[in-house]
């Protein structure tokens, strides 16, 4: 089976940088900060594949680089190095090449048409002053939809799917509760039927019952739509519930990967063992 998303050698560094940055940092050096120049190597040589319909988890402590990976995959920032391919029908004339080499314009199109993202903080993913329907419409408008009636039809179908009460469609999300904002974000992410959905700490900051509802929604959407998902979380419960395969990151590096059950039941690396045993 060919992967729908494949990443090779993804590296990102913040700071001035020096020649020894990469050799002086990483899991073996127990740090992601270069002792020579003080730069932070947020992720280094990250490579993985995501297969169609699969849910892949990325787990790790704060500062391990998991959110950086998601931001890079969503083109929110420029990587230092890396090769990124999406196997989608029409990758806007990319010819299956490295997406990082594309112009910002082409990248934005691919992002809009083939990717969806749900951030931990709804403020990043939603325009708080624009109505919930408008938030969904924004992606459709960028994709070239120019019929208000059809846009509203699609938006209300999505909001229904994500269990946002339809009478509140024309209200701005700042009037909504945290869980509802998160559901609007999910509806927005799904609006252009993306091939890949990126979920960055979706349930962090929600209370337990709302967490359960959001996770339930994501699981049922995954079952219905068969969409490939990348789930980033530090919460092992979320990883256990949603994912089939998991990557463990530390100091910007992948230190372990395998089936989620295997990682959670029989962790090989000392760090992963610590992580699994720290769950209350």
């Amino acid at each position: 089976m060919t992967p729908i998303l494949s990443v090779r050698g993804l590296t990102q560094r913040y700071g001035t940088g020096c020649r020894e940055c990469l050799s002086l940092t990483g899991a073996r050096r127990e740090s992601n900060r270069c002792p020579r120049c003080g730069s932070i190597v947020a992720c280094r040589e990250v490579s993985f594949d995501l297969f169609p319909g699969e849910v892949l988890g990325i787990v790790g402590e704060s500062g391990s680089g998991k959110s950086t990976v998601v931001r890079l995959l969503h083109f929110d920032e420029e990587p230092l190095a890396g090769d990124y391919r999406l196997a989608v029908a029409d990758a806007a004339g990319t010819g299956g090449g490295n997406l990082f080499a594309l112009s910002p314009f082409a990248r934005r199109r691919i992002r809009n048409e083939h990717m969806g993202i749900v951030y931990q903080n709804p403020r990043l993913g939603l325009r708080m002053k624009v109505s919930a329907g408008g938030n969904i419409a924004e992606r459709l408008l960028l994709a070239g939809w120019r019929h208000v009636g059809r846009i509203r039809e699609r938006a209300s179908a999505l909001l229904q799917q994500t269990e946002v009460p339809l009478p509140r469609m024309d209200e701005p999300p700042r009037n909504f509760s945290g869980g509802m904002q998160q559901r609007v974000q999910i509806a927005k992410a799904l609006s252009t039927r993306p091939a890949v959905l990126l979920l960055d700490e979706v349930t962090t900051g929600l209370d337990v019952s709302v967490q359960a509802k959001v996770l339930d929604l994501i699981r049922s959407l995954q079952r219905e739509l068969g969409i490939a998902m990348l789930v980033v979380s530090h919460d092992l419960g979320v990883i256990r519930l949603l994912t089939s395969r998991t990557i463990v990151m530390r100091h910007g590096e992948i230190i372990e990967e395998g089936l989620s059950d295997q990682i959670l039941e029989d962790p090989q690396q000392p760090y992963t063992q610590l992580l699994v045993n720290s769950v209350l």
Binding site: L141, R152, D170
Partner: peptide, 18 residues
């Protein structure tokens, strides 16, 4: 530069909704 005018379109959409 990127011909990204979705925000303007969104403004008009919101106007119509309101």
């Amino acid at each position: 530069a990127e011909a990204d005018y979705s925000r303007m379109w969104l403004y008009l959409y919101e106007d119509i909704v309101r």
